[in-house]
Design a binder for these strands. Sequence first.
DNA 1: TAGACAGGCAAGCACTCACTTGCCTATTCT
DNA 2: AGAATAGGCAAGTGAGTGCTTGCCTGTCTA
Lengths: 94, 94
Amino acid sequence: MTTVYRALDDETRRVLLDELAAKDAQTLFELCGALAVRHGTSMTRQAVSQHLAVLEDAGLVRSERRGRTKVHFFDPSPLAEITRRWPVPREDTP
Amino acid sequence: MTTVYRALDDETRRVLLDELAAKDAQTLFELCGALAVRHGTSMTRQAVSQHLAVLEDAGLVRSERRGRTKVHFFDPSPLAEITRRWPVPREDTP
DNA sequence: TAGACAGGCAAGCACTCACTTGCCTATTCT
DNA sequence: AGAATAGGCAAGTGAGTGCTTGCCTGTCTA
């Protein structure tokens, strides 16, 4: 079982979460394109697939097969463990 | 510069944060003892020192020399970046 | 049905990380 | 001053991680 902390310890995975948080239900190829176009990250399809597998194992991403594609969803609920373990002080919002 | 995410990706470092969150201003030897006694973690003093250095580099721990000792403080403010980047849904608190 | 399309499996490589070992510096106490 | 205490620096090692390459499975379309 992969922990949330380990899943977050990679910039590519964090960007993947950003992408899914901005637009849900994206496929592997769509996410590859988003990484290449919007973040200049040139990476193999398999690399992105492995990153998604880590995120899914940590519970941060859920997936669903649709025909020959596979759509991904961002699930932020595991992040609650972090704030529960170390309550973050409220930032001054001026 | 070490990121907060990498600093959190280690159980020993997370336990160190727990210890400092429970009791501030602890020295290296005190933290070594706490790890050994309360968590069964048998580890070299240098290992703990390196973990504290990572936490300090990430801004999660601040330190202060006092004579020949060095006391450590927990600073949770860098954790705010996580919740700012991915707002966590409020958990149901029954 | 043949081919294109979306994705998965597995081995291999380079690099990083956690931890240890050995030695050194600075401060306190007798 | 000399010994003990608290900590730091640096090199070395073993395991884990990110990424690639090559091949295979399942699904839609011409």
